[in-house]
Design a protein around this nucleic acid. Structure first.
Lengths: 334, 334
DNA sequence: CCTCGTTGTGCAATCGATTACCTGGATGGG
DNA sequence: CCCATCCAGGTAATCGATTGCACAACGAGG
């Protein structure tokens, strides 16, 4: 357990700690013979360095923190994987936290990341306004990029998908299929993407002459269980709409399950669409028509933006909305 | 950007840095009046502390590192969520890394966690032998608990599921359903749980008189795609077994998809079982019969073991194999 | 009134690595 | 042959918070 320090290495290699540091990091030239000696000594002792001490002195950690609302949602884990990949190329590591859709927990995670001196933060904030203070406070301290969703009132970079364009794709596709009335199932959360999606839904429905009854807009949370529940509510009473537009795939998958259980045939009796195109969207029965988010591009762009800020260039914050595409599967194909 | 330090607070509150530290952490008694003064000063300056410096001095970080083979696999993300929950109660934070099923990357992650002085590590190692060196090295430095899988040759705590008992449940269930021959689809990875599952499959198949042809044991990786592929191989030629036992749900879900595409009716023509009981196992068509892992218990036990070791009690390493249960759904119910 | 705790606070060492600055010797040009 | 330059490598300050030790003030008990 006795940790081996740079001093031990220096002693064994018969040089100063400064030389050991330089030999191992290559910060300044050291003669090859000495480098070799130091390397050998370090190996022999199994020297691993102390990242904490190094971080304190250099005041950087080569680590980026990421905060997402949920790691049970494959959309976010997909995003995380891509971010991790992109960071690796930049020689950085990812420190992942989940805020579990709780602004309070989110604030705590952010504080903790700041205290741990990560070099930058990538966050998908929980809430459009309740998250503002914590996000701003973090953004004041270090580079911060928002992904997927953003909060109001913080001037930071953002990368995500063009939600309005996404809903346009969905609604036009449904219109093409002859849909005359539609329901919308989403989360209660008031955050940018959730709001833009519901707004887009209404806008394009109206434009295309698709009827929307007020009671057919159901708000709960982004989960399979809520999809199931919403389906039950929707199918329980009154005339059924021609289609159900879901704000994410988890909801849509829960919806499909309950439809099957209730004997409602999708797509014959009802069309269903999702959002995100998670891997499981292709596996349901029927397979799910959904909006594909360009995850890899979002991740790459987020990392690029972060590096730009790390490069200390005081560029104005940029908001990048990438174009989504529609993956058409059986849930809307008669 | 000018970070506020403890010195600034001390100056404003007109006390020494020692007093500020004690007032804020409560490590030693400080008179109420002074505490109040310090609190006020800290608030006014927005003092957040420097976790790095604190960690260096105290040589603890109140952080636990976790390394999993994949964060795209809902089984692991479920586990992570439960661990995070359990840690929160203990006032610790989680630092999550993915090894992407690559022993080399895994070793790097472990080194990095050790360098960052996390207080302990929870790991599900990639490989039974290739991961050994890295895991041992980490375990030499700090408390380490293995979950789900374990490597050979390292004396550390382990918590997981009783894989043999799990396969017993599966095979007896299949035997009850009149299955006379079975295939097994798993990952190539040689790690404890993978190996115990294939061994259990063979043992119980033999015991119950279920025939297994050598070419019906297919090894690839834990992914949906491999499940699809394996299905194609399995259905392509020769007589079809009565059942396919899959070593995880991702494989099983891919298998179901390909079966549907090939016009093979599950469960009429073929029974299929999975392993893990991820949320999506209930959503497939047909829904999947699978082994349920007691994730919450595994997580709680892992955290408990880690705390025990952190308490510096030199107890002998314990290996806890929890009992799995079988969730029976449509993929095995005629 | 004189010890002997007790309590609250400050001083300064400390954690381990990095790096600004300094030194001594080698090198090269004039 | 001398001086300017360069380079490897050492010395010690530094990052920011914590904490062992010292000390002052105060109260209680004899």
């Amino acid at each position: 357990m006795g940790r081996v320090t740079i001093r031990d290495v220096a002693e064994l290699a018969q040089v100063s700690t400064a030389t050991v540091s330089r030999a191992l990091s290559g910060a300044k030239p050291v003669s090859p013979a000495v480098v070799d000696q130091v390397r050998r000594a370090a190996d022999e002792l199994g020297y691993a360095g102390n990242g904490i001490a190094s971080a304190l002195r250099r005041s950087r950690t080569d680590t980026v923190g990421m905060v997402v609302p949920s790691i049970a949602n494959p959309f976010f884990t997909g995003l995380v994987e891509h971010v991790e990949h992109a960071l690796q190329d930049a020689g950085r590591q990812l420190f992942l936290c989940s805020s579990r859709s709780d602004p309070e927990l989110e604030a705590q995670r952010l504080r903790s990341l700041v205290a741990r001196q990560v070099d930058g933060i990538i966050i998908s904030p929980v809430h459009g306004s309740l998250s503002t203070t914590a996000v701003r406070r973090a953004a004041d301290e270090l580079p911060l990029v928002q992904v997927d969703r953003y909060v109001t009132g913080v001037d930071s970079d953002w990368v995500g998908v063009d939600d309005d364009a996404a809903l346009e794709l969905v609604m036009e596709h449904l219109a093409d299929r002859g849909v005359r009335s539609a329901a919308f199932v989403s989360s209660q959360l008031t955050n940018s993407s959730t709001e833009l999606r519901v707004a887009g839904f209404h806008r394009h429905a109206e434009r295309l002459g698709i009827a929307v009854r007020e009671r057919d807009v159901l708000l709960g949370e982004y989960s399979i269980e809520w999809g199931r529940q919403a389906a039950r509510t929707l199918l329980a009473d009154g005339p059924r709409p021609d289609a159900v537009v879901c704000a994410d795939d988890l909801i849509a998958l829960g919806m499909l399950q309950s439809c099957a259980a209730a004997g409602v045939d999708v797509p014959r009796d009802l069309l269903v669409t999702g959002f995100d195109d998670i891997p499981f969207a292709a596996l349901s029965h029927p397979s799910l028509t959904t909006v594909r988010q360009p995850q890899a591009e979002i991740a790459a762009e987020a990392v690029r933006l972060l590096s730009r800020v790390l490069g200390a260039q005081d560029a104005p914050p940029s908001r990048v909305a990438l174009r989504p595409s529609l993956t058409i599967r059986s849930s809307t194909s008669r």
